[in-house]
Amino acid sequence: MNRNLIVALAATLITVFAVSMAFAMGDGNARKGKFLYRKNCRTCHNGAEAPDLSPADRTQAEWKATFADTGKIKCSGDWTVNEKDLNDIFTYLHDYAKDSPSPAKCS
């Protein structure tokens, strides 16, 4: 009985932890994110294949909305970035957004 309780509690904790991890974006490495954005996104977001896109083109709230469901981003199917990379990219875009303390000046 007691044992079952512990197992159930552990399972709950693990689930809660995993879920919170998945949704907790931000606080990544913005420096690395800038490079990863260049490597993985800029190749298309260059004004030719896809619109030129800089962090300062959107507000922090807009970036949050964009990354809330990355499945809706058109090219997400082609991405080869992992969760951590994605979080770094998000951190970069979010931290240099239009309404951030330090909006990106150029690419």
Binding site: A30, K32, F35, Y96
Partner: peptide, 10 residues
Amino acid sequence: GARAGEAYYL
């Protein structure tokens, strides 16, 4: 530090 960091990771 932004572009320098980018250069570092690149």
